[in-house]
């Protein structure tokens, strides 16, 4: 079958059919599933690591694990949910291997020297209205310490509940809540920094 013919054949597939075919080792089915979900998985990896090189490797690893395990997919949850959870686990495993604390108890919301002089958190003249555009927020999320970023992305962006996060991160629900609060406070700090906003404008 030529490439064009194969591409035409896969156009008519639905996901369930592709999954069944992938379970049989059909190369085109794997390609179909990869291209259907690659952006979602890659974006997740990028958000959680804040690093394109790591995101590349982790997306690769997530799809390899997916395809190795696809025969075990029984359809009890949506395929996309299954893949998403698998991808999150791949990233978390990576963070563990790197030795980075997923939940840093050392992190505080105090500005570092690099962040400039200490300010009173909550000062009403530093309201964020206007500074929380997409670019600024993305930059600030990337600048979060890894432990904070993980919790923030999982809860506030990916929609996981604290009990799910606690299970994935292997921490208590209270710790997940506490770290989420600290992550938001840190973001608030970062979004109020003049150089963060200046960088976004350039």
């Amino acid at each position: 079958m030529t490439l064009t013919n194969r591409a035409l054949a896969t156009e008519s597939w639905n996901e369930a059919e592709a999954i069944d075919r992938a379970k049989q080792g059909d190369a085109e089915a794997f390609a179909f599933l990869y291209h259907r979900h690659k952006r979602r998985v890659y974006s997740l990896c990028l958000r959680m690591t804040g690093n394109t090189a790591e995101a590349d490797d982790l997306a690769q690893e997530a799809f390899l694990q997916l395809f190795r395990k696809i025969a075990t997919f029984r359809g009890e949850s949506a395929f996309s949910t299954w893949l998403h959870r698998l991808s999150v686990n791949v990233v978390l495993m990576h963070l563990r291997r790197k030795g980075l604390p997923e939940v840093s108890l050392e992190e505080t919301t105090e500005p570092t020297q690099e962040d400039g002089p200490k300010r009173d958190i909550g000062s009403p003249d530093l309201a964020l209205i206007g500074s929380v555009d997409r670019v600024n927020l993305e930059r600030a999320i990337h600048r979060l310490p890894p432990g904070y970023r993980t919790i923030f992305v999982l809860h506030d962006m990916e929609g996981y509940e604290h009990n799910e996060i606690a299970e994935m991160i292997r921490c208590s629900i209270g710790n997940s809540k506490s770290q989420l609060h600290k992550a938001r406070m840190k973001l608030r700090d970062l979004l109020q920094l003049p150089h963060t906003q200046g960088a976004a404008r350039s």
Partner: peptide, 11 residues
């Protein structure tokens, strides 16, 4: 207000 804004914009 700031935290609500962050949560809303992140979502």
């Amino acid at each position: 207000r700031d935290l609500e804004l962050i949560v809303e914009r992140a979502a």
